[in-house]
């Protein structure tokens, strides 16, 4: 008798997917903006240690990286397993650091040359000997602002 009787089977309306591309695009733009492509391929093992009192490095363009660690598996046949220094894309020795510093300085504007931070990305298993040598070389080249690259953690253990 009621006027609003449902007539028979009711087909489920399809979910409207018109907004899906918009959502996906939003995500896409987010990742495009936040992405930083790796410029160098790592040739050394690089598991950096953890610390609690970390600071953020502000200007990426003013950071130069020095990698130290054991050569990765594919390079171990040639370079052995002792920790090595990697500058840009190649294995280098500590004597090359001076030149590396000069080259990195030349790439920047004159006004910003003294603001470069030298970020040491050192594998946590490395012994301090090689790190100290690198630090001494940096001192000689007057590259004094350094950064020990570490990841954030809440508490350090023994």
């Amino acid at each position: 008798m009621s006027k609003f009787r449902k007539n028979g089977k009711k087909s489920q309306p399809a979910v409207n997917t018109a907004a899906l591309p918009d959502i996906v695009f939003m995500l896409l733009f987010f990742f495009m903006v936040t992405t930083t492509m790796r410029e160098t391929t790592l040739k050394v093992e690089n598991k950096i240690p953890f610390a609690t009192e970390i600071e953020k490095l502000e200007r990426k363009s003013l950071v130069s990286y020095i990698y130290i660690g054991k050569p990765t598996k594919e390079f171990q046949a040639v370079f052995g397993t002792a920790p090595r220094i990697q500058l840009n894309d190649a294995f280098k020795t500590k004597e090359d650091i001076f030149q590396f510093v000069e080259m990195e300085r030349d790439e920047r504007d004159e006004a910003e040359r003294n603001l470069i931070t030298w970020s040491l990305k050192v594998d946590q298993k490395t012994e301090m000997g090689i790190v100290t040598e690198v630090k001494q070389e940096l001192r000689k080249a007057n590259a004094l602002k350094i950064n020990y690259s570490t990841k954030k953690t809440d508490k350090i253990k023994n």
């Binding site: 930083t36 970390i54 970020s119 630090k135 950064n147």
Partner: peptide, 21 residues
């Protein structure tokens, strides 16, 4: 593609100053 290639490593660390030579 971007999800895969992204490395979200904001660079953090302990900033120090070495003594001058």
């Amino acid at each position: 593609f971007f999800l895969v290639t992204t490395t979200m490593d904001t660079d953090t660390g302990l900033i120090r100053r070495l003594p001058p030579p």
